[in-house]
Simulated scan of single mutants.
Amino acid sequence: MEATTETRPQPATWRIVLAAIFDFFTAFWVFGILVATIFGGKTESGFNLAGGSALLLFALIVAYFVIFNKYLGGTIWKRIFRARRS
């Protein structure tokens, strides 16, 4: 009995880079607005975070990348651009 390994073609580098940039901005704005709403920091033009709330924002961004890539098979924009590596 022969084991077959199915290899998917690797995605183009531009897809991976563009997905990472879009993921960062998406996570930054979504988590930024969320943290600013909860802890105060919303402004007319967006949000302004400092100190602990800013650290929480960056921790959430890192957690987004780790959790989505490790446990969910890729981030939102990697799925949209089909930029997941096999």
Rank of each mutant, 00 (worst) to 15 (best):
I67H: 04
F22R: 01
L18G: 09
D23W: 02
T26G: 15
F31P: 05
T37A: 11
L57P: 09
R15W: 00
L60T: 10
A59S: 14
T26P: 00
T5A: 13
G74K: 05
G46I: 06
L56I: 11
N69T: 09
A36V: 06
T43Q: 04
T7H: 10
A12Q: 13
Y71Q: 13
F65S: 00
D23N: 13
T7V: 13
E44K: 08
L60I: 05
R15D: 06
F28H: 11
G51D: 00
F24M: 09
A59E: 06
K42G: 09
F39Q: 04
F58R: 00
V35D: 00
I21N: 13
I16S: 08
R15E: 04
A54Q: 08
F25D: 06
I38Q: 04
S53F: 02
L57E: 02
T26L: 14
A12P: 12
R84F: 00
A20R: 10
L57W: 02
I80G: 10
R8E: 09
I67D: 10
I16V: 15
I38F: 12
L55K: 00
I76S: 05
K42W: 04
I33N: 04
G40F: 03
Y71C: 12
I80D: 02
N48L: 08
L55N: 14
Q10V: 11
V17C: 07
V17P: 02
N69E: 15
I67R: 06
T75I: 09
I38V: 15
A3N: 11
L49P: 10
N69C: 07
I67W: 10
T7W: 07
L34Y: 00
A27I: 10
D23E: 14
G51I: 01
R85G: 01
L55R: 04
W29N: 11
L72R: 05
F68P: 00
A54H: 02
I33L: 13
P11T: 07
Q10S: 14
A54N: 10
F22L: 15
W77R: 05
D23M: 03
A3M: 14
W77P: 03
N48Y: 02
G41N: 08
Q10M: 11
L55P: 03
S86P: 14
I80A: 13
V30L: 15
L72C: 08
A59C: 09
V66H: 01
Y64N: 04
L56F: 09
W29F: 15
R79G: 13
F25G: 12
R84E: 14
L72I: 11
A50L: 08
I80E: 03
G32L: 04
T13K: 13
A63V: 08
E6I: 12
V35L: 02
F47L: 01
